[in-house]
Simulated assay, not measured.
Amino acid sequence: MKASNVADSLILEVADFEVDVLTGVYSEETGQKQPLRISVSVRLKPYDRYLPDTPLGASKNYMDLKFAASDALPEGVHFTLIEAVADHITETLFLQDERVEAVTVKIVKLAISEAGEKIGMTLTRERR
């Protein structure tokens, strides 16, 4: 098959890590960090070919995804909605690298689970 007959899609992922974030709507949540389980996937404009000696610059450091969902969150800022946390993560990743075509952030609020269910949301945003 000729390379001109194929179209690649490269998805980088960091899944199911926990971060404590100031978030919540109710008064008992205000001022207290809550544990969130966050997964981030990024669709990156793919390199032409990935050969054994392809340099790191042809992809993206996976730790950039984790950084955007942890250390890049502003310290001391209370996010009323976890949707705002996801929004901040997506914008950070778009600003980091122009090759990022789309970002998906899944957040599960661990503190409100009663029987192990996963309660949360997923935000997907594509670059226009």
Rank of each mutant, 00 (worst) to 15 (best):
D64H: 12
A3T: 15
K33E: 06
E83K: 02
N61P: 03
A84F: 05
D16F: 05
D8R: 13
P35S: 07
F67V: 09
R128S: 15
G24M: 06
A84M: 09
V21K: 00
A7W: 11
R127T: 10
V40W: 00
E13G: 11
D8F: 14
V105G: 03
H88N: 08
F79T: 07
L65M: 03
G120D: 11
Y26V: 11
L73N: 02
V103N: 03
I38M: 00
D71M: 04
L51V: 15
S39K: 07
A102R: 11
E75N: 05
L65E: 00
F79E: 04
I11K: 14
L12N: 06
T122K: 13
S113T: 02
K118R: 15
K118Q: 13
L44H: 09
I107Q: 04
T122S: 12
G76F: 00
L12Q: 07
S59M: 03
T122G: 05
G116F: 07
E18L: 11
K66I: 01
H78E: 08
Y62Q: 12
D97T: 07
P52V: 06
K33M: 04
I89R: 02
V77N: 07
K118F: 05
T30M: 13
V100K: 10
Y26F: 13
Y26P: 03
S113A: 15
A69C: 08
L123Q: 08
F94K: 08
V85N: 01
R125Y: 05
T124L: 13
A102S: 12
T80M: 12
F94I: 09
L73G: 00
V40N: 03
V6W: 15
G76V: 01
G116C: 08
A84E: 10
V103A: 05
Q96D: 10
G31C: 13
P74D: 12
V6M: 08
E117D: 10
E126I: 10
Y47P: 09
S70A: 10
S9Q: 15
I82K: 06
A7E: 15
A15C: 12
V105E: 01
V100D: 00
I119W: 00
L36N: 03
S39A: 11
P52I: 14
A84L: 05
L123I: 13
E114G: 10
G120S: 12
V77R: 12
V108T: 08
